[in-house]
């Protein structure tokens, strides 16, 4: 019986020259996710990290889904990973979450850690109607899940229907063009520009991953919140005389400017 941890026959010796598998416990940062909304997170992170810039640099981090407590919430892992990456947190995997959420994470090539206080395998039950966001074509229908278009194909996203309360859209790596209205209680996000040919009543966030020259155009401004590159204004701070106008929102000298356009 050979008790040696490193067998010495020819084949294994050959492998050993190239790699060795070992276990080691690493101290990982835990990022507890309390709200999967990319917009909310982007805004909060911006505030939080502004106080302590360069605090993190490629810090290996595990995303803990347990605080969500809602296995139905669809999480846009690729968007989340790149958002956190921008802030120096390198997501290596997730812990907790429902089966659907864990499947979605696995599809995003994240490692699956067992939940902190949960035996592996004891997954919360999910109704079969719930699932992770399916891959969306460039022209999309609204879904509860944050929809997204991969940057490597068509990076602009076109939405024909009304974006309704509770829905999220994210045009990753490109512009978001919406032929209808964006209703109160919904969020539309783009790494590039956002064009809304209806009324903007919800939240719109352009230049989401850092682009000062991104803009938002809308045919009728009635927004809850607008943001470019993390600088935002809520409804309270939008000039009342611009409400109901066709407007463009842009950054000028580090300030978020809203101005009417067209035949004013």
């Amino acid at each position: 019986m050979n008790a040696s941890p490193h067998p010495t026959d020819d084949g294994d010796t050959a492998a050993k020259n190239h790699f060795v598998l070992k276990r080691r416990a690493h101290n990982l940062m835990i990022f507890e996710l309390h709200n999967p909304s990319i917009v909310q997170l982007a805004l909060r992170l911006k505030d939080h990290m502004a106080q302590a810039p360069n605090l993190f640099k490629n810090t290996p981090t595990v995303l803990d889904l347990a605080p969500l407590e809602d296995g139905f919430k669809v999480i846009d892992f690729p968007a989340l990973v790149s958002l956190l990456d921008n802030h120096g947190l390198t997501i290596v995997g997730i812990s907790g979450g429902s089966e659907a959420q864990r499947n979605a994470a696995a599809r995003a090539r994240l490692a699956l850690f067992p939940a902190a206080n949960q035996a592996p395998g004891a997954e919360p039950q999910l109704a079969p109607t719930q699932d992770a966001a399916p891959a969306k074509p460039a022209e999309t229908t609204p879904s509860e899940a944050p929809s997204e278009v991969q940057a490597d194909c068509a990076s602009n996203m076109v939405m024909r229907q009304t974006v309704r309360a509770g829905q999220q859209l994210y045009a990753r790596g490109g512009d978001l063009i919406i032929e209808a209205s964006v209703n109160e209680g919904s969020e539309v996000i783009a790494d590039g520009d956002i064009h809304i040919y209806g009324t903007l009543r919800g939240r719109a966030l352009a230049g989401a991953r850092g682009r000062k020259d991104a803009r938002i155009w809308c045919q009728n401004l009635d927004a809850e919140l607008v943001s470019i590159n993390g600088i935002y204004r809520t409804r309270d701070s939008i000039e009342p005389d611009l409400i109901g106008k066709a407007a463009v929102i842009e950054i000028q000298q580090d300030k978020l400017i809203i101005r009417a356009f067209g035949f004013v």
Binding site: T141, P142, E144, T162, R164, A165, G166, G185
Partner: peptide, 13 residues
């Protein structure tokens, strides 16, 4: 607002 939310669910769930 709730009706809008429900319309979204009808279209996706």
């Amino acid at each position: 607002r709730d009706a809008d939310r429900m319309l979204g669910l009808l279209a996706s769930k």
